[in-house]
């Protein structure tokens, strides 16, 4: 009983892992956002990918905390702080990063097993990138109207996205995820855990292999990412803005304008009076 109590990860330890991953991965993405990308032809050599940080921490500690921490860190540090927040697209990145890191973290029962660590790191990257690619293709389809009718566009999007996927997995995946993770996990194992007041992960204390539940959960989360995009598409047809204005709705627009102008004037007057009263 006593033993079991010690091994259990407490709520606050989860918070520690979350904070740690968020801070580190956030910092890394902040810089990668700032470093210009090197483009040779259509091959993009970006240092964009510092996923080794959450992968390493997810393998050493509680995977879900590390995964959520990483996704939050990226969102907060590089998207919100730099004002690069892209609305819906960020939800997709948030979910894919979370799933990728979580699955990688769950794959490893014993961080001392280098082969398993390597497989996990690559799996994490491939999962994240594949999902990212799918959503990316869908995104362009929404954004450009008459996607199919623009000559050469569909093919080019499939080709560039497919190529980007391979490029990311083989280039960024190996150089920036596999190798650094293989380098860091054994070095940190047994050293970083006591700093957080935890026991290193071993075969006995691991939370168990990936099971059906994990897969279903991941798929469901990915579904959310896609559904949010599809909702956007159907909404586009429902609202049908353009048709509305292009025809005889300019009267409504004029009414809106008048209302807006009136509101501005009234507010300005109220404010002026208010200020005078205060003075």
């Amino acid at each position: 009983m006593e033993m079991k109590k010690q091994q259990m990860i407490t709520q606050s330890q989860k918070l520690m892992i979350f904070v740690l991953t968020m801070a580190l991965y956030g910092l890394a993405t902040l810089f990668t956002e700032l470093i210009p990308k090197l483009q040779i032809g259509i091959v993009e050599f970006s240092v964009e990918y510092f996923l080794f940080i959450p992968l390493t921490l997810g393998i050493l500690f509680d995977p879900i905390s590390a995964a959520l921490g990483a996704a939050t860190g990226e969102l907060v540090f590089s998207e919100i702080m730099l004002g690069q927040f892209g609305g819906l697209g960020e939800l997709e990145k948030f979910i894919t990063v979370t799933i990728g890191v979580y699955i990688a973290g769950r794959l490893v029962a014993n961080p001392k097993n280098r082969k398993m660590v390597g497989i996990a790191a690559m799996t994490g990257v491939v999962v994240q990138q594949a999902m990212g690619m799918m959503v990316d293709i869908l995104k362009v389809q929404f954004a450009v109207e008459d996607f199919e009718s623009v000559a050469g566009l569909p093919q080019s999007v499939y080709a560039t996205e497919g190529f980007a996927f391979l490029n990311d997995v083989l280039f960024s995946g190996i150089l920036f995820c596999l190798l650094p993770t293989l380098f860091l996990v054994p070095k940190l194992y047994g050293k970083i855990e006591p700093l957080l007041g935890m026991q290193p992960r071993t075969e006995k204390t691991a939370i168990g292999r990936i099971n059906v539940k994990v897969i279903i959960g991941s798929l469901a989360a990915f579904g959310v990412a896609i559904v949010s995009e599809f909702m956007a598409e159907s909404g586009m047809e429902l609202i049908d803005w353009e048709a509305g204005w292009a025809e005889s709705k300019s009267a409504i627009a004029i009414a809106m304008m008048a209302a807006g102008a009136l509101a501005v004037i009234i507010l300005l007057v109220i404010r002026k009076n208010h200020n005078r009263k205060e003075a």
Binding site: A253, I254, M256, A263, V264, L267, H274
Partner: peptide
Amino acid sequence: SFDDFLFLAISFFWVSLIIFLSGY
């Protein structure tokens, strides 16, 4: 505050203006 309403109203006015213009 007032400033918030003002900001919204100006934005609203501008949007209606461009919706109107976009019809032509």
